[in-house]
Each structure stands twice: as structure tokens, then as C-alpha cells.
Design a protein around this nucleic acid. Structure first.
Lengths: 215, 215
DNA sequence: TAGAATTTATACTGGGAAGTATAATCACAG
DNA sequence: CTGTGATTATACTTCCCAGTATAAATTCTA
């Protein structure tokens, strides 16, 4: 203690503090946006939640647009990461897809779920909007790829990968619309039922013919 | 001709003109909102499209909020109507559901599709928001009901009606997000593939076991 | 054509919120 | 305790845009 750690660690501590505070700003923004929408949220609102004033926010963030961008990115990055994990995990294409669905539901029910799917990228500058579109496209392509793999290895029946991805991603993204009002199920439970539905479909299966993975 | 129709018919003509113009205002609003989002659209923008000035809009509409409300309502009403038609048409619960899906896709790809699902009801006053919520709830309940009927009459396998509705409605609503960028398929074609996916699921079906309606 | 009703435009008000200039405070080093 | 950089607050400016007061123009009636 008397011999203090290197001045750099102290400096590093400062830097760390800044990062933590910055994260807090982004999180507060995400929650406020989810609550009231992007345009109905003033920076004063966000500042108030943090017991701070508006100029303080500008010390951590460039402007309101950047806040939205960071919220977008934080949410989408989780799914991109999940894509990576799903890619090497498990065996069959379908099992990888199921894995991804579970992670997806977790992400979408998080604080950043709203921004991820309900915020309009029209509220971002063209440059930022393009970056978000790239992330979304990456996720889209990954899902299509898993479906194609599943078709190839026989774990998924013949289907149009693009439309199937649109349908699946739509069902998942839409969770952000109802999850707050109706949070009666956990993320895992939602994922489970979605998987059941998408794997087996609505049609009644004749007894004894179980083409899904038997649990 | 020399004996003109009753003065009321002339008056009625005026009334009719007003209605037509009012409809044009709502439609222009719907398109503008879809294009730029609600908050990024000024009334001057909408007026410009109609080759008119802002005060003219106020002659046909109470305020901006009401424009959004009418857009919401126009879109949702189509689906509510489709629910009604699906209810008496066809035979099995599943067939009725399929019917509804087809109509749903048509509505969602229309000019009002965006407002129907992507506009935030937070931008409406509590009273208007409540009316929209009621319409949405009506649709939700109808879908659940059809699924329950399907389970009862054996055309749909055992499932959780609420979650199934959430998933199906989500996939359908999400069409509003991608349909403009990727309109490579017609509404009917999209509906067809969605039905195929939701009825049969992803799992490969053993040959000879077709539980869906054989075409 | 006079006059009433309907429709539209010009030119303004007002408020809300993003962003900023400036100064005060705090933390720590020497 | 003194000065330097990091952090925060007060008090503005500025702009955009919804909504309006007022008057003009157009249409219809008689």
C-alpha cells in the first residue's frame, strides 16, 4: 500500500472508470428507448435516471445518434457471437440452428432487445446505418447457412432457406414486441417452444413417427 | 339533366370529394411514414407530395397523431376483416388458419403494412393507443382461437396456442421489415411458403407420411 | 353578378429538445 | 497547499416543426 502500484495502474483505473460510466450511459439509454421510444426520450430524461445533467452525457458520448448506434451494436453483437458459437458447436445443422435460437431468445429479451429490432435505422446517419445493416446481414446469412447445412446433412427437410430464415428470424425478433408485457415464460422456455414448433410444425404427427430428436 | 338531381346529391358529391381527399391524405401519410419513419416525416413533407400546403392537411385531419392513428386502423381493419372471413370459410381449423395467413400477408405488404406493425403506439395518446391495442388483441385472440379449433378437430397437433400465435404473428408481421427491400416474391408466394413451413416444420418427413393436406 | 360557403395559402407563434460556451469543482501530484 | 487535468453543472443558443390566425381564392346558389 505504501509502495503504490505503478502510476499506470492508477491511470488505468481512471480509464476503467470512464468505461464503466460510459457503459452505464448506454444501458440507461437502451432502457429509456425501450420504454418511451427513441424520439420520445430526451437526453435530459436519460441524464435524470443517472442523477446527472445533460452535458455530462456528452462527456461520454458524441451525440444522441451514437447512443442509439451503440445500443444497436451491443444487441446485435451478442447474436453475432452466438452465431460463432453455434457454428463450431454440436453436430447436425439442425442442432446448430436450435443452439442459435436459444441464444437469440436470450439476446432479444435483454435490455438491448428493443434497440436491436425495433429501433429504426432511419434514425442513424447513412454511415452508421450501413454498419448496422452489415451486422444484420451477417446474422441473416449465418442462419441461411445453417439451414443449408441441415438440408445437406439430412437433419432438415427440403425448404427455401431464405424464406425460412425470414420466418424464423421474424418470429424471434417479434419477441421484443411482447416480451415486456407478457414475460410469463423464461427465455429458455420460449426457445424450447419455438424450436418445437419450427421443427415439427403444426400438423399432427402420427404416433410413433417422431422425426425430431427424441428427448 | 335539365331537371337536376336533388340538391342533396350535389351536396353529397361535395362530401364524397372530401372523403376522397381525406383518403389521399392518409395514404400519403402512410407512404411517407413507411419511407422515413413517423418522427422524421414533417407535415410539410406530406403536403408537398400532394402539391398542397400544410394548413390544407388540417382541413381534412385533426392533427399528426390522428394521421398515424388512421394508418394503424386502416391496416389493422383489413386483418380484422380477414379474421371474420376466415371464421366462416373452409372446414378444418387448420384450413381456416391458412386462409387467414394468406390474407394477412396481403395486408402486411400493402401501403399500410408499415404502420400496422412498425409504428410505435407510444406515439399515440393513451386513448388512441388503447383503441389500437384492442384491435391487435382481437386479432391475436382470433388466431389463438383458430389454433384451438384445429387442435380440437385434429387438424393441428398439440401445441401451446399462445406461443404458437406469437411465433406465427411474429413471422408475418416481420414481413413489413424486409418486403420493401426484397419484394422478389408476391404476397401469395410468401404465404404459400410460410404455410408450408409452419404446417410441416423443418424436420424431414419420411416419404409416404404426408400429414399436410395433399395437393 | 352578389353574396354565402367551402377550400386553400401566406406568414406567423410557441414549445421542446439537441447541442454548447463557460465556469465551477474534484482528484491527485509535487 | 498549489497547480494541472479530469469531471460535472449552469445557463444559454439554435433549430425544427406542429399547430394557428388571418386573409385570399374558388365554388356554388339565387
Amino acid at each position: 500500500m505504501s509502495k503504490p502500484t505503478s502510476p499506470w495502474s492508477v491511470a488505468g483505473d481512471r480509464v476503467r472508470q470512464r468505461e464503466l460510466k460510459r457503459d452505464a450511459v448506454i444501458l440507461a439509454a437502451a432502457r429509456a428507448f425501450r420504454e418511451r421510444g427513441f424520439h420520445n426520450t430526451s437526453l435530459d430524461d436519460i441524464a435524470a435516471v443517472l442523477h446527472v445533467t445533460k452535458p455530462t452525457l456528452y462527456y461520454y458520448v458524441l451525440n444522441k445518434e451514437q447512443m442509439l448506434f451503440e445500443c444497436f451494436r451491443e444487441g446485435l453483437n451478442r447474436i453475432v457471437r452466438a452465431c460463432g458459437e453455434a457454428r463450431d458447436a454440436s453436430s447436425s445443422g439442425r442442432e446448430r440452428l436450435v443452439e442459435l435460437v436459444c441464444r437469440y431468445v436470450e439476446a432479444i429479451t435483454s435490455d438491448f432487445g428493443w434497440c436491436m429490432v425495433r429501433a429504426e435505422d432511419q434514425d442513424l446517419s447513412p454511415a452508421m446505418s450501413a454498419r448496422i445493416k452489415r451486422l444484420k446481414s451477417e446474422i441473416d446469412q449465418e442462419m441461411r447457412s445453417l439451414i443449408r447445412q441441415g438440408i445437406a446433412d439430412g437433419s432438415i427437410g427440403a425448404c427455401d432457406p431464405k424464406m425460412t430464415t425470414f420466418a424464423l428470424a421474424g418470429a424471434l425478433n417479434w419477441i421484443a414486441h411482447w416480451y415486456r408485457d407478457d414475460a410469463s415464460l423464461s427465455a429458455a422456455q420460449i426457445a424450447e417452444r419455438f424450436v418445437e414448433l419450427f421443427v415439427n410444425g403444426l400438423a399432427p404427427r402420427p404416433d410413433g413417427v417422431i422425426s425430431g430428436k427424441s428427448t
